[in-house]
Nucleic acid binder design. Structure first.
Lengths: 230, 230
DNA sequence: GTCAACATTTTTATCGAGAAAACCCCCTTT
DNA sequence: AAAGGGGGTTTTCTCGATAAAAATGTTGAC
């Protein structure tokens, strides 16, 4: 049932049942197959995933650590709601952290880091066509995420990277929920290219400004979509 | 066994077993009763806490979401290590978030917020004597935490507050591990007073500067303690 | 028609046991 | 001496069952 969208990442070599449950649920939530506010009854999810109760609980617990799921003591779990207010809070925080991470990466990044960005960009651009005919595949989402990750990969701060990832995922959920169908003509590939070029030529201010604009532009479109839905 | 230090917060009205386990473990880790790198064997913790395996696992899972515990797939849980590198990473990030939150609070805080700060400060200052004769009680730790919380309580950003809390806890662990015994003469009460005054008179720059100095000063002392230990 | 008390059903939280993986020690081989 | 391979032990992970709590439905009084 939640396997409607493009698919779930391949399970690692010897991943645990809990971990698979976690990933499936995460994918389902990020992909919008599990709508916000959906009640996640243990019994139901359990059957859906073909696992035991503990595995489900543990997966849900992990997700609530990332804010994708919320838990209410003794009354279960549900998919985190989405609101305009949260979207802006999240976006603002994310701009802050992403640019901070990018600055650090630009300062200390080496050749390998640069090469990683170029490679990730190339892999993403191979799928640019999809932007004209949504919905985007799981593959595109993966590569898009990997590109943004590559930009900041040289950042040495573990805490910054940890929080960045959480917010990135959150943003992804908003984007996919609101924009899964329509193709917005705004030259996303060009934006990515611009960010990459500024980054690799180590123009921190320019790179951050473009990245910020990139994030805000998306948020604005998402916000409109949310506003018009109600 | 982990109940060596000052105590565990009173359990809420009808808290779950898992939640109690979580709080006990959290207190034990923050208080240093569970040393960094300690292996947390389910069987052992289970017996220690008098609960079942699932409750322990869930508690540990939650703690690893906050970074107080680390999990390795199929090889269990252990108390997160502490390192100088992590201390500085954490501190830098924390200064960033705390000052950002404080600025927001100063901008939008109302009378209730101000009153909360004054009250929290007062409650803390009643226990100032303890600074001269460590170790600090659980009560002091509680009130100290509450004071810092009160400063930023008016901040509207949920994400910021969430991350702030995580980093605050982390810092607490470092501080208590390193400084549990010695009384450092540095006028902590005066620092708190200064921060409060600047905050309430809405001098954002001054307040943030003092808060930053307060955090960094502690970090430096902790760093020295860590460095000299090895 | 509204509300409260009680009975029934659904759902969560928790436990203990068992399968599977990792660990450890000792022995053999090169 | 180092590397590799069993075999037994420990520990994690996962399940299904059960107790406890919440939600829901029903009845009866006012």
């Amino acid at each position: 049932m939640f396997a409607k969208s493009a698919g779930t990442p391949p399970p690692g070599p010897q991943s645990t049942v809990t971990d698979q449950a976690y990933r499936k649920l995460r994918t389902a939530i990020l992909g919008g197959d599990l709508a916000p506010d959906t009640k996640l009854r243990i019994e139901h999810v359990k059957r859906e995933l073909g696992t035991g109760a503990s595995a489900v609980r543990e997966a849900l617990l992990r997700l609530s650590g990332e804010g994708l799921v919320q838990m209410q003591e003794r009354r279960g779990f549900f998919v985190s709601p989405i609101t305009l207010e949260d979207l802006w809070d999240l976006t603002e925080m994310r701009v802050d952290l992403e640019t901070k991470a990018l600055r650090m990466a630009i300062e200390v990044g080496d050749d390998t880091w640069e090469a990683g960005i170029v490679a990730a960009f190339h892999r993403l651009s191979l799928l640019d066509d999809q932007l004209k005919s949504p919905p985007l595949t799981f593959e595109w989402e993966e590569r898009h995420s990997a590109f943004h990750q590559a930009l900041v990969a040289a950042c040495r701060s573990n805490w910054l990277m940890r929080f960045r990832r959480i917010l990135f995922d959150q943003s992804e959920r908003y984007r996919r929920l609101s924009l899964s169908q329509q193709s917005v003509e705004r030259g996303v590939p060009a934006e990515h290219l611009g960010i990459m070029n500024a980054t690799i030529s180590r123009e921190a201010d320019a790179a951050c400004a473009q990245l910020k604009a990139h994030i805000l532009r998306t948020a604005e479109i998402v916000a409109e979509a949310i506003a018009s839905e109600r």
